[in-house]
Every structure is written in structure tokens, then in C-alpha cells.
Design a protein around this nucleic acid. Structure first.
Lengths: 227, 227
DNA sequence: GGGAATTTGTTCGTATGTATT
DNA sequence: GAATACATACGAACAAATTCC
């Protein structure tokens, strides 16, 4: 009937953080103190705290103490990767869904940033595009820099999270790469539309980019289905 | 020097799931077996498994066993809520960011479903709009049903997650409610545009809806800043 | 329904590694 | 280096929930 017991301990710890108004980086009570405060044994406390760390709510530093975390979205990359990772042949569907979400967010966002970027940012984007064929991290930095100015920390972390998960399972996939030049061209077109301050063109360019990505997923899907 | 041991154990368990190709619902090895397989004590195993449960990767049933989970996004509602919850006066900014992400996704999605919904779905949406002023769950069901046909499980869970977190912290906020009638009207307009198969109008209607929501957050922000 | 077996939940005690002072 | 405080890890025992005979 009643709820899981482990979860209630976690909730009480979170409530404790709120009650004491502990901000990110603030030190948590020690394990011994938590044992008394929550009237639980050390192991129960540790299991709850460990779970909260997996959610990014607290951060444990060995031999030093436990501190309030900032619940950054990157900590749940393992969870998303686990979900998206194809289960032995059956289904790149989850990966396709992930790309679609990326597309929804980025196509919507690009319309709001078109024409608002400083000249410095635009040249930085140009530089990233130039070395995109050699440095895989340039793509990640490109998408991050593109939306940095919008000031929405949550959306930035979401985009970065999705990027990380996508490339993690894409790398574990089969085919090498189609055309690096085409990817570079797609990104260059995006920068041009943003520089011109044309939201419609920027959205179209971004949609085109994701059309390529989805096509790549579809090819991999067909390849795994055929064997 | 080396990485945290707890995290290593978690990764090894996830790797074990992949190696054995265990799908959602499949039974995990018992704690005793995991102790031998991973050469760790029971407490260490339990801490790792507990963390994986917090991420939705496994599901523990007392007295029964541990099973592979489906990593549904709803498990990370506590993490998002923790992040978005205003830290004592300072900042509804995170909540505003959350609403913006909702808007990005829903405005983009509504353009793809406009004109594609069956008559049965449309009448069901009408019914939900009608009782939206009395039943708070109707709003959630409305947004879920609206995008159900697109077949993207990830985006459905994302929207539901954001809805949950938003209303969780909105309820813990101050002012009662401005105009329920206006909300109903906004949703009715969305249904009409979708029924008419007009993507542009649908996007505009959805944008209007979120304009209201963001205005509500802004009012609350001003209220808390003034005291 | 009773009872045994299995599995997770909780607790205690103890020893060890790590960072700070 | 020494002392202290803290997290990490292990082992053993008992409690509680579930399933099956």
C-alpha cells in the first residue's frame, strides 16, 4: 500500500534543504547529523543521499562533506542514454524521437536569436564552423554558443544534454560518416541566415540540418533491420 | 585520484544490463548475486542500485526483486522541481525559463499536428476544455492528448514532466488565479485552429496561451520582489 | 489459511581512505 | 607530521514484504 520508504527519506532531506534555505554549494549536515535529524541508520541515510546525488540535488566530496548541488541536467545523461540506446537491433525509434525534440527546440530558438547576435559572436561561430570537420567538439560548442545569448540556462543545458546523449549512442552505432562537407555547409547556412537577421531563413536552415541528421538515423535503422 | 567508487558500480550495473540485453521489466540479479558479480558488499550494491532507481533505470519491489525500468522522465520531476523552486524570494527566473521551454516545444509541435487529428480526438479535446475551469487535471490531459498522435514518446513525457513541475511550484506560489475564463478561451482557440487545419493560426493560439502563462509568472515575480 | 523460502529493508559495529587544520 | 572530521566500505544480523507450496 504505502509508498517506498527510500523515497520518503529522500523527500525529507529535500524538505530539510528548503526549510534551511540552503542554496547551491551550501554544506549539508554530516551523515551523523542526518542520522539523528531523520532518525535513521547510516546506511539508510547514505542510500538516500546517494540517490539525491544521482539526481544532482546534492554533491558528495569524499573526506570533505556533502554539499547542495545545482541540479544540473547533465547528471541525467546516463538515464537518457540508457533509454535511447537501442536494445539489440530492435529500435532506433527512441533515438529518432530524441533528434525530433532537439529539432523542435532548436528550430524554435533560432527564430528568436536571428539578428540579435553580436559581431563577435558571429565571427566565433564562423571559426567553429571552419574546424567542424576535424574537431567533433566544435559542433557542440557551435550549438551552445548559438543560443547562449538568450539567457535561458535551462534550455542551454537541455540542448547540451541532448547533444551529448545523441553523440554517445551515435558513436556506438555502425556507419562511419557520409559527408562531412555537407554538415559544414548546413552550419554555414545557419550562420548566414542569423547574420542576415532573417528568422524564416534561419529556421529553414536549421530544419535542413536536422533533416540530414534524421536521414542518418533512418539509414542506420535500415542497416540494422537488414541484418 | 581515481573516480568515485559508487559511480563505477552504477556504470558496471548498467553495463551488465546491456550485456545481458535485459529489456524493461526484466528481472535483475538479486542483491546477493550482484555482490558476487561485482565483488562488492551488499551495502555498496544497494547504494548503487538505489541511485539507479532514482534515475528510473531500475525498479525495486520489496520482497519481490529488482527489475529493469524504462527510464521514464517522470522520475526526475523532483530534480527539476528542486531546481526551479524559487530560493526564498530570489528568482522566479528558473520558472520563467521552464515556461519558455514548454512554449518552444508546444508551439513547434502544434504546427505539425494541426489538421491531422481525428474527429474523435477533437471532440475529446472539446470536452476537456469544457471542464477545464473546474478540474485542474483537464489541462494536463488536454496537452497530453493534443500531441499523443505524433507518436514521440519522449516529447510526450517531456511535456508532461514540465507540466507537472510548473504546476507544482506554481501552486506553492502566492496569488490565487486571475481569470479562469480567459484560460478556457485560449484553449478553445487552439482546438479551433487545429480543427481548421491551420498551422499558423494554431501556433499563434499556442503562443498566446503561453503569453498568458508568462505574464502570470511575471506578476508573481513582481509581487515577491515588492515585499 | 499456514508456513517456508526468497528477496529487499534496516540497523549496528568496525575499519579504512581522504581532506582540512 | 599529527590530530580531527568526514566519507567510504565491509560484514553480520534481524525485520518486513512477497511468492509459492
Amino acid at each position: 500500500m504505502s509508498r517506498r520508504n527510500g523515497a520518503v527519506l529522500q523527500e525529507r532531506i529535500v524538505a530539510l534543504i528548503h526549510d534551511r534555505e540552503l542554496g547551491p554549494g551550501a554544506p549539508m549536515p554530516t551523515e551523523t547529523m542526518l542520522m539523528e535529524l531523520l532518525d535513521a541508520s547510516r546506511n539508510s541515510v547514505r542510500e538516500a543521499v546517494q540517490a539525491l546525488q544521482a539526481l544532482g540535488i546534492v554533491e558528495i566530496r569524499h573526506g570533505h562533506g556533502t554539499f547542495v548541488g545545482r541540479a544540473s541536467l547533465e547528471v541525467l545523461a546516463p538515464s537518457l542514454a540508457f533509454r535511447v540506446r537501442p536494445a539489440a537491433g530492435a529500435g532506433l525509434r527512441a533515438l529518432h524521437d530524441l533528434v525530433e525534440v532537439r529539432e523542435l527546440i532548436e528550430v524554435g530558438l533560432i527564430g528568436t536569436v536571428a539578428g540579435t547576435l553580436s559581431a563577435a559572436r558571429l565571427t566565433a561561430l564562423d571559426a567553429l564552423v571552419s574546424k567542424m570537420d576535424s574537431d567533433p567538439g566544435a559542433d557542440r560548442a557551435f550549438h551552445a554558443l548559438l543560443y547562449e545569448s538568450c539567457g535561458n540556462e535551462l534550455v542551454l543545458q537541455l540542448i547540451d544534454l541532448f547533444w551529448t546523449v545523441y553523440h554517445e549512442v551515435e558513436g556506438a552505432l555502425d556507419p562511419p560518416e557520409g559527408r562531412a562537407a555537407a554538415i559544414v555547409a548546413r552550419h554555414r547556412r545557419i550562420v548566414e541566415a542569423v547574420r542576415a537577421g532573417d528568422p524564416t531563413a534561419a529556421r529553414a536552415a536549421m530544419t535542413g540540418h536536422f533533416t540530414d541528421v534524421k536521414a542518418r538515423v533512418a539509414r542506420a535503422q535500415a542497416a540494422t533491420a537488414g541484418r
